[in-house]
Write a protein that binds this DNA or RNA. Structure first.
Lengths: 260, 260
DNA sequence: CGGAATGTTGAACCGTTTCAAACGGAGTGG
DNA sequence: CCACTCCGTTTGAAACGGTTCAACATTCCG
């Protein structure tokens, strides 16, 4: 299922680049959540295992008893559920650096699947270790809680998107959200990014068919709202697309947590 | 906006019924989350304010800076967002006793609305007090976290429902979920319950129009899958509806949290 | 009792799906 | 290098599920 060597942060060989990206991510998390440097150190010293996964690997399966979480160092993953009829709904995209996958931390059986979208480097950490640090360090628990709030908010907006917007607006909104979130993660801002999803996956994310995604996307391209070659997306006029998409980034709570 | 007198639990007049239902709810929460009796006492001694709200009152507005949470003692509430076109999507129904409204606990500006569906008795508590108890008592923080996980799971299932199931299945699924959740809250089990929602609200919850809800509901009734008079729903054959609804209660994580 | 909100029904319409066929690019093996 | 396959994209035509609009019935509530 996964290839690559398991490397422990503690007393184990690790490429410099891996260490530094882990540090960078936890630092971003720390700033975001305003945790102390002691908390930051403790987070860094947890027993991570670094693994590499091929595109399409399952990180978690619906029904499994989950015992570990992942922090995406590089690559993209997605969460999905499938209905009794075999219809798939993608319920979230997970970007690199979006802290820990905490969604099943206290749950006996997973209620959805997580699968990699591209090749991924993931720092794996046991639930036990995360529960322990959350119990010992209130600020870390607080930060974990805040990330769950952000996830929930994003999921609500997706629901509005799927339930109440037409295909064109829906797709435009998705493209805006992707750009805004990449932006926040410190990727080169806004105008152009790689979107490593097939049209079928886009359809599954937006509650549409691949065919209709195709037509809708071509519509957006034809009207000059986005450019699009292979898996690359570029947005020539951000304001224009935002208006078309009915997009307002407030629900992402970027840098807007109340830590008092 | 709200009528009725604000009553403080601490050293203040309070009807017996109010106290006892609050105690009952916190006890259920305590059992659910396996928190200690000390934690339970601390939860009970928080400075709640009891208020009564008319049906249709806003408990929170999109964009507000939220400073307090509510615990629904009796009545129903719902969360919703509205799109730029004025289309509304209901993203969750809140049942009595479903612990605290923690979804905006660490957020600078609310990202959605909460409105009462019926007349509600709500125990209001400040964010400050909740943050304090969460910081001081890891088990309580843990329990809060678990309720967020459950919310998130429910929201994901709604997304699957709206994105990938047809109107009939969607409505049937909604009715099943409602029954299962009421059941968990200790209401008389399964077969019959009151559903105090208009068809327009049902439509907004399911991403459909009121007209289509009407036709779909009549279809279910005609086929003997549900009975329905005024706002009452009864389910003659639970297994039958469950099959029609593609419903599997696992995502509700009823009594299935891993507290190790 | 009267007026407003909610439920019910029909007919026309439209956005999206379905099915089917063709096209293009990447990777593989001969 | 070509032939071949696989996967994803593109396009068209027909069908369908759900919407829209409009009219009317019913219930709720002051």
């Amino acid at each position: 299922m996964w290839c690559g060597v398991a490397l422990h942060l503690q007393g184990c060989i690790l490429k410099n680049s891996d260490i530094s990206s882990l540090v960078r991510m936890i630092d971003r998390f720390a700033i975001h959540a305003q945790i102390s440097s002691g908390d930051r150190e403790a987070l860094l010293e947890l027993p991570y295992t670094l693994r590499s996964f091929e595109a399409g690997s399952y990180l978690m399966r619906d029904g499994d008893a989950p015992h570990q979480c992942g922090l995406i160092i590089s690559g993209l993953a997605y969460r999905h559920k499938v209905s009794g009829e075999g219809q798939r709904q993608i319920v979230a995209i997970q970007l690199p650096g979006e802290v820990f996958d905490l969604q099943q931390l206290y749950v006996a059986a997973a209620d959805h699947n997580v699968q990699t979208l591209t090749r991924c480097e993931i720092a794996i950490i046991s639930h036990r270790a995360l529960r322990k640090i959350a119990a010992e360090r209130p600020a870390v628990a607080h930060a974990f809680f805040a990330t769950m709030i952000a996830e929930l908010s994003m999921t609500r907006e997706w629901m509005l998107n799927i339930g109440r917007r037409d295909a064109r607006t829906r797709l435009a909104h998705f493209l805006c959200e992707f750009a805004a979130r990449l932006d926040r993660q410190g990727c080169p801002p806004g105008q152009a990014y790689e979107l490593p999803m097939t049209q079928e996956q886009l359809g599954d994310a937006l509650g549409l068919t691949a065919v209709h995604i195709n037509r809708t996307l071509r519509g957006l391209v034809q009207d000059g709202l986005v450019e699009h070659d292979k898996r690359g997306v570029t947005i020539p006029d951000w304001g224009l697309l935002v208006r078309e998409a009915d997009f307002n980034s407030r629900y992402l709570h970027i840098g807007a947590f109340d830590n008092a």
